[in-house]
Simulated assay, not measured.
Amino acid sequence: MKFSLVNIYKFRGVLLILVVLVFNTPYALSQSQQNDESKQTEAKKERGKRKKRKKKVRLPEIDLSHWKVTLPVTNDKGKPYEISPPEILDFASNEVAKPYMYIDSTKGAIVFHAMPTESKTKNTKYTRSELREQMVPGENNVNWTFKDGGYMKGKIQMDEVSRDSDGKYHRVIIMQIHGRLTNEQRDLIGEDDNNAPPILKIYWDKGKIRVKTKLLKNLNAQIPEILHEDAWDNDEGFNFEQEVGFRKFTLEVKVSDGKMVIILNGNEYKVYENIHMRKWGVFENYFKAGNYFQTRDKGAYAKVRFYELEVSH
């Protein structure tokens, strides 16, 4: 078959038209769209992964600039190991602190871990991984009275806790208001330290929140009698109705002249407003929060999470 030059050009023209038609068919377009959509889907997945990674790293809402911590280990002098401001701000990189006070970035909490050890503070047989308020960072001698007033709020969760030989969970003190003698009061009654009784102890007790306070034995007592620890007795204690178990809960402590209020989850209150609170006004005080473990049982332990902690005066 002979092809003329004209036929050849006609043939090429037909081929060109066919090529254009093929590449402009819906199939070709859909393939291109599918490729674009596939790229967009992958990009969305990657952005989602990045968001999830960001969400996983959460930090607790706790300013430690006015707290020191006591840990359940001893220092080189055989005393409980403490970290005060400003060093406590970098506690996460402290090798001694890491097993006992650390950040759980998946939960956004500081975990306080305690167990029976040889590290015991004075006047107690129990160990602790617990914060102590310092109104002036690094200084224990500046504190507050009930007349000054105080407020502490924490969002807390019991993480893990061991059981006793009867199968009951061990108790943990998670918040306190501790009394303190001024130097003049200490010298007046001949004590060798500034320690005074705690006017408030808040326990995680088998899944419930229990509150203990002090009662003055002789309501007519004055200084110096009232300053002695044995002038005060323990009350019977109070249990909130709500059971918190291993769920998050919120505790608030409000102190004013002659009055102390404890609030659980914003809807259950215990109010102390009596002569004992008024008499307590003679003492200075400081807040405590964390894990003050209440057993010496072998192998026992507890871990408490603090998501939020704030204090004001």
Rank of each mutant, 00 (worst) to 15 (best):
67 W>T: 02
260 M>R: 07
187 D>T: 10
313 H>K: 11
233 D>G: 07
34 Q>D: 10
37 E>I: 10
235 D>T: 04
57 V>C: 03
78 G>Y: 09
245 G>I: 05
239 N>W: 10
176 Q>G: 00
213 T>A: 10
257 D>W: 07
25 T>D: 08
236 E>H: 12
85 P>S: 07
14 V>W: 06
260 M>G: 00
293 F>G: 00
169 Y>A: 04
175 M>I: 07
124 T>G: 05
123 N>Y: 15
196 A>Q: 02
139 E>Y: 10
64 L>K: 01
286 Y>F: 14
176 Q>Y: 03
95 E>S: 14
11 F>P: 02
174 I>K: 01
139 E>P: 04
265 N>A: 01
90 D>R: 10
268 E>Y: 05
176 Q>R: 13
234 N>Q: 12
26 P>Q: 11
144 W>C: 06
163 R>H: 15
285 N>A: 08
2 K>I: 13
232 W>M: 06
278 R>T: 12
13 G>V: 09
16 L>M: 14
34 Q>P: 01
156 I>C: 02
240 F>T: 03
123 N>W: 12
9 Y>S: 13
99 P>I: 05
93 S>E: 11
121 T>Y: 07
38 S>A: 11
26 P>A: 05
46 E>L: 15
20 V>E: 10
312 S>D: 15
170 H>T: 05
90 D>Y: 10
102 Y>S: 08
161 V>A: 04
68 K>D: 10
296 R>C: 05
226 I>W: 01
285 N>L: 08
243 E>A: 11
262 I>W: 00
